[in-house]
Design a protein around this nucleic acid. Structure first.
Lengths: 245, 245
DNA sequence: GTCAATGCTTTGTCAGGACATATTGACGTA
DNA sequence: TACGTCAATATGTCCTGACAAAGCATTGAC
């Protein structure tokens, strides 16, 4: 039912057909044209309607199944199950989330310098001690209240932060613009009490802090970034949508 | 290089061929037979060697690419990038993790009862107030130290906990055995100070607590479970591997 | 000796077909 | 009425074939 959705294909576009279909399907779901519970037409009918082969149509649907937005049942059909799905890597990008929520935010760069990695840091970045790394300390405010203390380290060989506009945009956005694609990230989320420096910077009296440690890898498996952040737990929490396959 | 890996296929098995290949490839990577950096043979050669078609071989490789263990580059080949990858849903299953680490653990069921859902709980489980739900409170110990207070709610209509052996195995294991497949989960991780009851049960003096709130959905998009847990942050942290596609 | 053009390798995309299997509902029979 | 059988339907699996596009190395010209 509800095949009022209109999908247009551009065969001269470099964007793969299955991706064009997937994008327009996802948009339809996010915008509510297809609501949770709605059944979409079967693969063969859809493929015919769009002038595509069944494998291509399947591939389009599969990407949305992997995102957790559609569910297929053999002998039954394909159904919409979920509208809003959160992007994966970064768990949640603090910068983007706050921007999306319309919160006024501000970032203060406390330190940005090149230095040689000590043993512990080299281990995190999988370098040999002594190699040069960027060290970046930032303090992020929301509505003029300090929210998070962000400490990051990146190998100089792979990233250039010299001209990064880190006060006005996120670190990950800078990496994306530099053509660096983060593929895998290992994260560890915990909690701790604030130490003296953190209490001072974050103006958090006895508020427990949420900690996040992350190592991010690019396509080649090289470490791009190691960060350890602390957040005021009264102002922030991590949200994520997980999909099991 | 390093095609000493031996993959055996059973065409009479109900397990799909691409899945058999993927499983054995994953095992080889996890066991270090294929180490990060190793290149595997190209799709066509592998397919021929196993007597499979290229699409089937591709499908096998794709599942490992989606898990973040392999990376493909057009014109180059396929490489191993990551050995250890953590399972997805549950972020991390406390019970399984502790068992894998060889820690001695014990679970105490504080409460298990059927009751009718109040307004707040009904909203979490997407029921109408008054419908019956299971309420489960557990206290989990590691090495005889209290680690976490687990509070869960499940709709009576979808799950039966009457005979669940919740002292000796995890809740998720019980659900799996009952044939319930969790497909999507929304989680929220934060931190807070312990209240009086939590301080008493967890014997945590001034240790901040890590909180986890989760809503889990099955294939049909129905809510199977809502849980809010607290963990002693000096003994536990969430670990997760994220893959971007 | 340097650099650009070219060709090879490998994955990416797309088509079309065949059979298997799970689910549902209709039908027929006890 | 109750139960089992069967057919229709939809997705799951697997195959063959073809061309496109990106990376890399080799070749060739200057």
């Amino acid at each position: 039912m509800s095949d009022s959705l209109s999908i247009t294909l551009d065969r001269s576009s470099p964007v793969p057909l299955y991706h064009q279909v997937a994008q327009q399907l996802e948009l339809a779901i996010r915008q509510g044209v297809l609501a949770p519970g709605d059944k979409i037409d079967n693969e063969i009918a859809l493929a015919n309607a769009l002038g595509l082969s069944r494998p291509t149509m399947r591939q389009a649907i599969q990407t949305l199944v992997d995102k957790g937005m559609l569910v297929r049942k053999r002998g039954v059909g394909t159904q919409v199950v979920h509208g809003k799905i959160r992007r994966n890597v970064e768990l949640t990008s603090l910068y983007d989330d706050l921007a999306a929520a319309g919160q006024q935010q501000r970032t203060e760069v406390l330190a940005l310098q090149r230095e040689s990695a000590d043993e512990a840091l080299a281990a995190h970045l999988r370098l040999t001690p002594g190699e040069e790394v960027w060290t970046l300390h930032r303090l992020r405010f929301v509505n003029d209240e300090p929210l998070a203390l962000l400490r990051n380290h990146l190998p100089v060989a792979l990233v250039d932060l010299a001209d990064a506009e880190l006060e006005t945009s996120g670190l990950y956005e800078h990496l994306r613009r530099a053509g660096i694609h983060l593929r895998v990230a290992e994260q560890r989320i915990g909690a701790k009490s604030a130490d003296e420096q953190e209490r001072e910077l974050l103006a958090a009296g006895d508020v427990p802090l949420l900690t996040m440690e992350r190592t991010a890898f690019n396509d080649a498996g090289a470490v791009i970034e190691y960060g350890h952040h602390v957040y005021r737990s009264d102002l922030y929490a991590f949200e994520i949508t997980l999909v099991d396959r």
